[in-house]
């Protein structure tokens, strides 16, 4: 499975991927946490059948995976890829996912809502992700009746998703904003604009590779298009700030800038044992070097592939065996060296 995130999209120097998620529930069933096993199975089968038994080209390469049929490493690998939530991975409910072969479409069944329809595109393509989500939703509503209220719109288990049920987001790499400390101002401003920004791998932004997820907070009272436009505009403003700061930092001291990038590349491409945290930190510097054209012979595709593989479960999947933390650190260093060498020799500077 070659994931979406391995492709390059528009504004890929800052935006890694875009995603739109729609929350939907079936009209005649209580929300998942109030369903008994029998109802859980019924809902699972209704959704599964309406997607799998369809000749529509949009649905043709979609496969079903029952959560209980996946082993813990496989489930965790899906969480690391951001395709399913931790909640679903640990779910005791009858639940599953419908996943397209390119991993552009992932439908979670019986998570917090009966359906969580997600479309993921590389780079800055929130509008495209919405278009696909919207057509899939329209297709599904021909077969199943969604819980909908004239006043409240699409009914969701949690009131925070009520109305459109939409969550539009972009995964963005902001090393310059973090380095300069301006990120705090950005986070504050976003909060006032009804936009949430979270660290991709946790609270500590440096440890999480300077990767953030930006998404809309409000779902009720605005149209989907208004929400998409708003989040897109805010994201573009952040992109512009990040780019300006990168250039400014470089201009102020090119030698120091290049030194930082190449030192990180040196450790990244030569380490014999490395933790997830350290590798994400170094990866951020290397990515910045590639984005700025300082590092020439490494492709963004390779870095995106490495970003996925260095996470614990995907690493073990790749190795095809369970590894303890110390073994993982060795394996991680090995994978990084291998992927970088397959990409061609990284430039060692002039």
């Amino acid at each position: 499975m070659k994931g979406t995130v391995n492709e390059k999209g528009p504004e890929s120097d800052v935006v890694i991927s875009s995603r739109v998620r729609l929350a939907r529930n079936l009209k005649d069933y209580p929300f998942p946490f109030k369903m008994n096993k029998e109802q859980q199975n019924e809902v699972l089968n209704i959704i599964k059948d309406s997607v799998l038994n369809d000749n529509d080209p949009l649905l043709k390469d979609i496969k079903y995976y029952g959560i209980s049929s996946l082993n813990p490493v496989e489930r965790q690998a899906l969480v690391e890829k951001h395709l399913i939530s931790r909640e679903l991975a640990e779910s005791q409910k009858e639940s599953g996912i419908l996943l397209s072969s390119g991993e552009k479409v992932c439908i979670m069944i019986n998570e917090e809502d009966h359906l969580r329809l997600q479309c993921i595109f590389p780079g800055m393509q929130i509008d495209k992700a919405w278009d696909l989500c919207n057509s899939m939703d329209s297709m599904l509503e021909k077969k199943v009746k969604f819980a909908f209220d004239d006043h409240y719109g699409y009914l969701t288990c949690c009131p925070t998703n009520l109305g459109t049920g939409i969550r539009a987001s972009a995964m963005i790499h902001l090393p310059a904003l973090v380095m300069t400390g301006y990120i705090k101002g950005v986070l504050d401003a976003c909060g006032k604009l009804g936009v949430a920004v979270r660290g991709r791998y946790g609270e500590n932004s440096e440890a999480s590779g300077n990767i953030f997820q930006i998404s809309n907070q409000m779902t009720l009272g605005l149209t989907e298009e208004e929400i998409i436009t708003h989040i897109t505009n805010v994201t573009f403003q952040i992109i512009e700030q990040e780019r300006a700061l990168r250039n400014e930092l470089y201009k102020q001291n090119p030698i120091r800038f290049e030194d930082k990038v190449f030192r990180s590349l040196g450790v990244f491409s030569n380490a014999r044992t490395i933790s997830t945290e350290e590798s994400l930190k170094l990866l951020s510097d290397v990515r910045l070097g590639v984005d700025m054209g300082i590092i020439k012979n490494i492709s963004m595709d390779t870095l995106n592939e490495i970003m996925l593989l260095i996470q614990p479960a995907n690493l073990q999947k790749y190795a095809r065996k369970l590894l303890n933390p110390a073994e993982r650190d060795v394996m991680r260093a090995e994978v990084i060296r291998l992927k970088l060498s397959q990409n061609g020799q990284p430039t060692k500077g002039d």
Binding site: D137, H151, Y152, P159, T160, T164, M218, T219, G221, L222
Partner: peptide
């Protein structure tokens, strides 16, 4: 809802039926 969304009336997509 007012606090969460600043609004209580849906204005987005409506299912075809």
């Amino acid at each position: 809802l007012k606090r969460l969304h600043g609004n209580t009336q849906h204005s987005g997509k409506v299912p075809e039926n």
